[in-house]
Write a protein that binds this DNA or RNA. Structure first.
Lengths: 122, 122
DNA sequence: CCTTGACTTCAAGTCGCCTTGAGGTTCTAC
DNA sequence: GTAGAACCTCAAGGCGACTTGAAGTCAAGG
């Protein structure tokens, strides 16, 4: 009963498929603690990391972005985070606009969006 | 001097490449008003439509979603819009979380995000 | 020991959204 | 009438993030 996790255990704990985890490993987004008989064994902290990856992806980060943030040793990551914060704020604004637009379009009396004068003219 | 636009004019007006516009045409997202000598001629209203497409894409809509919304004749589009509003609200919440997380991580004293106890443990 | 299920690698496939390239036609200006 | 820009189609390529499949290895229980 070791404290290291098989790839399947990590998959179960995170909801990420084993193939995706291997892909992350290949890409260097996560790093396996060890190999036992050729099989990956992960430190349990990888679960937090995978969760962080998922959240970041949902917020629009690419795997390269995430690698850059997580594996940065030159202290550049703060600048990257700053850029990403600007991007996120921007994206949020566009989503807000879209919510407003859709809410308005939804409230109109048109049968078809294409003929609604509120929709295509913004 | 017709009131119809060539594909190049639409590209200039919208910032979308001609190849993308042809692709939209093939996909049925936009449709030229006519063909002159085999060449597409667009009604100027297509510009509004292309802008709508761009905004929608930025908000996370696929071209299929957009076609479904714009070319719906069965009055189903309102339900689609409702679903999309839920999605957007959701996405906005996740972006807000990420903004909060990054702001917090940024403010910590760590050199490397990977070793920051605030980041991977959420 | 043997089975069974979880693991391994590697190559190729998928999906959405285009872009690129080849090879050809049409429009516009001189 | 002719050059050159802009247009056309069709097939293939590219990117990100995986998934799928083949063929083989490893580990745990009976």
């Amino acid at each position: 009963m070791s404290e290291l996790l098989t790839i399947g255990a990590v998959a179960d704990a995170t909801g990420v498929t084993t193939s995706a985890l291997r892909y992350y490993d290949d890409r260097g987004v996560i790093s396996p603690a060890a190999r036992i008989g050729g099989q990956r064994r992960f430190d349990p902290t990888v679960i937090g990391r995978v969760n962080f990856i998922q959240r970041s992806q949902q917020a629009g980060f690419s795997l390269d972005d995430i690698v850059a943030m997580l594996d940065d040793t030159a202290g550049q990551w703060r600048a990257l985070v700053d850029r990403k914060l600007v991007e996120l704020t921007d994206k949020r604004a566009r989503i807000d606009e879209m919510i407003e637009l859709l809410t308005e379009v939804r409230a109109c009396g048109c049968d078809v969006v294409a003929t609604c004068d509120r929709a295509p003219s913004c």
